[in-house]
Design a protein around this nucleic acid. Sequence first.
DNA 1: ATTAGGG
DNA 2: CCCTAAT
Length: 466
Amino acid sequence: METDRKSHSMKKLDDVKCQRVDQPVVPGLDDEVTEVEHLLAEPKIEHVSVDGILCFGNENIEKHLKMEDFSCAFDYGWKISAGGLDSIRGRGGDDLKLEVLDGLLDEVDEVDDIDAAHDLSGACEDFLLDIEFPEKLSELDCGPREGSTLCNSSSESHSPGFSGRSNSVGGISESSTATVRESNSENGGLGKRVGCDLHHNFRRKHGCQGPVMDVGRSSIEHMQDLDKSDDDEKPLVSLILSNQKVKSSVKVTKGDTLLRQKRLRKPTRRYIEEFSRNSNMEESKSHKIQPQEEFPQVPSESQPWRGRPKKIVLKSELESDYELSASESEDGRKRTKRSKTACDRRKHQKMWTLAEVIKLVDGIAKYGVGRWTDIKKLLFASSAYRTPVDLRDKWRNLLRSSSAQENNRREVETHPKHAVRPLPKPVVRRICELAAIHPYPKVSSVNYVPSSEQPTTKGTPVYYSA
DNA sequence: ATTAGGG
DNA sequence: CCCTAAT
């Protein structure tokens, strides 16, 4: 009808307008985003001190200590960011805050990845070999082995999505990585962690096959040398180091050819995912870090490279219905940062709330079935998850379930053990009505315009064509 | 880039 | 949800 036509002709322009109308919060966001960045940048300064802490790595203290400090530093930064957000909160930044927190959460995952990578060295034999090479390789690729170059590359790998953006966590990981590497020149063992991390990301970026062996090898030799020199001075460290060294060298000698072949087989995304997941879990056990605990519901899945290739976002989800109304307007929002490879629909699932369902349903009623991008943009503009496809899928499911309900109503009610049907009758009714009008895709009643909904027979869907 | 369909 | 084919 009217709305229909409107949404058609005005398209994007209209969309923008609607967004502004519907969520007044949105427009302001742009302006505030910059502020947020400032605020986020601020903590970065703090990180200098953090860096200081980390930098004492030059003294060759054991890496464990370093790890702890790292986590602490992270916590610190996080808190600061949150606090900074609070200050702008007054100006409708509530959602903003959430968003940023969201972002932070995402980054938390990245940091987690680092840790996971660390664990990787111990847990994954497969990956062990090339653990060292990336550092070397970055030296080769980036020419001078300056910390700066490596710093750049590493930061890039860390957060592909917002490498450019100044970001608290990004800042941390960046500086810390660089720092660690520095100490690495003295302390070969530490390089393992760093290298591992680098490798982890590196592998993601490039296919990662090729000259791995050579590089890794020379790198190892390098390490041994370093190790030797270290040996005299720092027994403790050397102990750790030699441990790792042994591991690596064993790896090489034992599996040179074997591993070469092994390496050819590029791990499946699934594999990597699973593995990293496991590592993470182990990691969380042994480390108290877990900044995620700030978000009780989020089950800590960190596979940023999984899921839809777009800019999906995870929000502190599991919104209850009312929470939804509040969050609906803010939760998602375009991720200003994390533009590129950012893809984390952490889980392949996000529960549909009743509110969402209702919204979807009357979105369909308004704009028609099949116009999912429109519905998405207009009604779910705020929720970054819920792609148009998701909407469609949900609708499909709704149709199925509603029809099923019609059939089995009595049976199901007598068997409450299948009590998986929190769909309120009114909603079901609407679904059925819509189903009557749009028997879903395969409709061939092309010219039929749902100008007026006629719930002629609300129990029995009417198919207009054959 | 979107949508339909199937898994 | 995920993926693919067709538009």
